[in-house]
């Protein structure tokens, strides 16, 4: 059990009118980049808050071998967090922010942080108030990457950023931070942008994990087939989990665990993108 960074069994959390976690069960090994993906209100943020020990909940949860409910202080030495809501005070300057984190976090390397900020517009005297949203995230990322943590939790880290800042964000993370001893858990709605970065993916719906798979196993399990009009009945007999028609009489069907040889006889096949898989899995969520 100790080789899992996060190990959750039967997590349960209900807010006043809504069940946010409903027997949520999953495990995250070290050295992975895991995407936690789900529609709004599916329980993503609640799951992350449980991992970080920010809320009470029921069920078994071990993060780096510790219970976040009772050992949060010890856990925080090895866990870092970037939320979609900026928490940096507006009056603080770059230099003050670095000084502050250096004062509160034993694993923070100020020199490293300065190095990450070289070549950016974030000069020491600049106040958060004077920064664009992208610059604030840039500062936040530099602060967090300079902490030698084992688990990094990112909740919608690139929300509201333009495409240049988004690309740069993940580029920095891969180049300057991630290695096989670190683990990253990230939630985002920009599925296409991160799908090749992920090593594993988890779909969460109504507080339950509905898909938990290594990215390179998706191609073995799922297939998308471009079916000709005359093969429709044969294709439907193999029970596609999703189907949508295209112009010129072709239909795209998505199969889960069907025999590749039989699918190939129906038409051109390919591995579906994460976004298509997500849409098919979450059908009827808001109905």
């Amino acid at each position: 059990m100790t080789n899992f960074v996060v190990s959750a069994r039967g997590l349960r959390k209900a807010y006043k009118n809504k069940v946010a976690l409903d027997g949520t069960t999953f495990e995250i090994p070290a050295g992975r980049i895991v995407g936690l993906i789900g529609p709004n209100g599916a329980g993503k943020t609640t799951a992350l808050k449980a991992i970080l020990g920010l809320i009470p909940f029921d069920g078994d949860l071990k993060v780096l071998g510790k219970d976040p409910r009772t050992q949060r202080d010890a856990l925080m030495n090895d866990v870092c967090f970037i939320a979609d809501v900026a928490v940096l005070p507006r009056w603080i300057t770059v230099a003050q922010a670095i000084e502050f984190v250096a004062g509160v976090h034993p694993r923070f390397d100020a020199a490293k942080c300065h190095r990450f900020l070289e070549g950016t517009q974030l000069k020491p005297g600049l106040k958060v108030r004077e920064m664009s949203k992208g610059m604030i995230v840039q500062l936040h990322l530099a602060l967090v990457m300079a902490i030698d943590a084992k688990l990094l939790v990112l909740d919608e880290p690139t929300l509201g950023l333009d495409i240049l800042y988004r690309k740069q964000f993940y580029q920095r993370l891969l180049e300057d931070y991630f290695d096989e001893d670190k683990t990253i858990v990230v939630t985002t709605h920009q599925v296409e942008e991160i799908e090749h970065i992920l090593t594993d993916v988890m779909f969460i719906r109504d507080g339950k994990v509905v898909l938990d798979a290594a990215m390179d196993s998706l191609g073995e399990r799922y297939a998308e087939v471009l079916v000709n009009a005359d093969r429709l009945d044969a294709a439907r007999a193999l029970k596609p989990i999703d189907e949508r028609s295209l112009p010129f009489g072709k239909t795209v069907m998505l199969f889960d665990g069907a025999d590749p040889a039989r699918l190939a006889a129906l038409g051109e096949t390919r591995t579906p993108g994460l976004a298509d898989l997500f849409v098919a899995t979450m059908k009827g969520t808001y109905a």
């Binding site: 891969l174 180049e175 090749h196 970065i197 090593t199």
Partner: peptide, 14 residues
């Protein structure tokens, strides 16, 4: 591996 991963936005395992 790190450079390629960052530049192409791929996970290092790939």
């Amino acid at each position: 591996v790190r450079q390629v991963a960052a530049e192409y936005q791929l996970n290092p395992i790939t």
